[in-house]
Simulated assay, not measured.
Amino acid sequence: MTVTVPPDHLIDLAEWEALPEDTSARCELVEGVLVVSPRPAFRHQELVFELCRQLRTQLPDGLTALPEIELVVDSVGPATVRVPDVAVLPTDLVADRARARRGDLVAVLEVVSPGSGRTDRVAKLAEYAEVGIPYYVIVDPDGSVAEFVLDDGTYRLVAEHRGTASLTLGPTISI
């Protein structure tokens, strides 16, 4: 989507879907507000690629890892659409979906970028719990990894790692 003039109102999901694609920036919709940030730096992109590669070699049949899919967090009222760095989802959803919805994702991994730390650690932590994603992992380029599991509607920190991490996304996955 290319946004030359920002909307002058809160946009809904239909308006979000009608926006033209823009590969020059990263766009999310947060409570009806279009949030535009620069494309991630090369190091960030390298980490996302590597996470997807490693996850795909270790995930059980029927699951895959994809970068930057759209996730509808809230479609009613002021809509929220997030774009996680890496999403783990059933492979049968890949062919017939434009975006993920509540109950579709098994895990989400976010790579912290300058300017995204608070969003990744606070806002997305709450939003991903709200849509029931069982596992949430925050990867910091400094080498630290925080692993959360959904427990009675909220995330509980289950492990913090440095360097290589063995995650418990169902079966144990090493990244």
Results as ranks from 00 to 15, higher is better:
Phe42Ile: 11
Pro40Lys: 03
Val112Met: 03
Arg118Ile: 10
Gln58Asp: 05
Val72Cys: 13
Glu46Gly: 07
Val35Gly: 08
Ala100Phe: 13
Gly163Ser: 08
Val131Thr: 12
Gly132Met: 06
Ser24Gly: 15
Ala79Cys: 12
Thr91Glu: 15
Arg43Trp: 12
Arg43His: 13
Ser113Pro: 01
Ile173Leu: 10
Ala14Lys: 11
Pro171Thr: 15
Asp104His: 12
Val5Glu: 13
Ser113Gly: 02
Leu59Gln: 10
Ala65Arg: 11
Leu93Thr: 06
Thr2Val: 13
Asp142Trp: 06
Asp152Lys: 06
Glu21Gly: 02
Gln45Lys: 07
Asp22Cys: 09
Val86Phe: 06
Arg56His: 01
Val30Trp: 12
Pro78Leu: 02
Leu109Tyr: 11
Gly132Ala: 07
Ile133Gln: 09
Arg118Ala: 10
Thr91Ala: 14
Phe49Arg: 09
Ser37Gln: 13
Leu59Tyr: 11
Val88Ala: 01
Asp61Ala: 14
Ser24Trp: 03
Gly163Met: 07
Leu157Cys: 11
Gln54Met: 10
Leu157Ile: 04
Gly170Gln: 07
Leu167Pro: 13
Leu10Gly: 00
Thr168Leu: 13
Gly62Phe: 00
Ala98Ser: 14
Leu169Arg: 07
Phe49Met: 08
Pro78Arg: 04
Val30Met: 06
Gly143Gln: 08
Leu19Met: 15
Arg26Glu: 14
Glu15Gly: 00
Arg26Ser: 08
Arg97Asp: 01
Val139Pro: 00
Val112Arg: 01
Gly32His: 03
Ala18Lys: 08
Ala18Tyr: 02
Val3Met: 04
Gly103Asp: 09
Pro78Asn: 14
Glu130Cys: 03
Gly62Asp: 04
Val72Ile: 11
Leu10Gln: 10
Leu125Thr: 05
Ala159Gln: 11
Arg156Trp: 00
Pro7Cys: 01
Leu51Glu: 06
Leu89Glu: 05
Ser24Glu: 08
Ser37Val: 15
Val158His: 11
Ser116Leu: 09
Asp104Tyr: 11
Pro67Ile: 12
Asp120Ile: 03
Glu110Phe: 10
Ala107Cys: 02
Arg97Ile: 12
Asp85Arg: 02
Glu70Ile: 02
Glu127Gly: 05
Ala25Thr: 15
Leu150Asp: 02
Asp152Asn: 03
Ala129Ser: 02
Arg118Ser: 08
Pro20Trp: 02
Arg39Glu: 07
Gly62Lys: 10
Glu127Phe: 01
Pro78Tyr: 02
Pro7Val: 03
Ile133Cys: 09
Ser37Tyr: 00
Val149Ala: 15
Thr57His: 15
Ile69Arg: 04
Leu66Tyr: 09
Tyr128His: 12
Glu147Gly: 11
Gly115Cys: 10
Glu46Asp: 12
Thr57Leu: 15
Thr154Gly: 03
Leu29Val: 01
Leu125Gln: 04
Leu150His: 03
Ala123His: 09
Ser174His: 14
Thr4Gln: 12
Ala100Val: 15
Arg156Thr: 15
Val36Asp: 02
Ile175Val: 14
Arg56Phe: 05
Glu21Gln: 05
Pro7Asp: 02
Val88Cys: 01
Tyr155Phe: 13
Leu47Gly: 03
Arg39Cys: 11
Gln58Met: 06
Ile138Pro: 01
Ala87Gly: 15
Val73Glu: 09
Val5Ser: 12
Thr154Cys: 04
Glu68Trp: 12
Pro20Leu: 08
Phe42Gln: 09
Leu34Gln: 07
Arg121Glu: 04
Leu157Asp: 06
Asp92Met: 03
Leu66Gly: 01
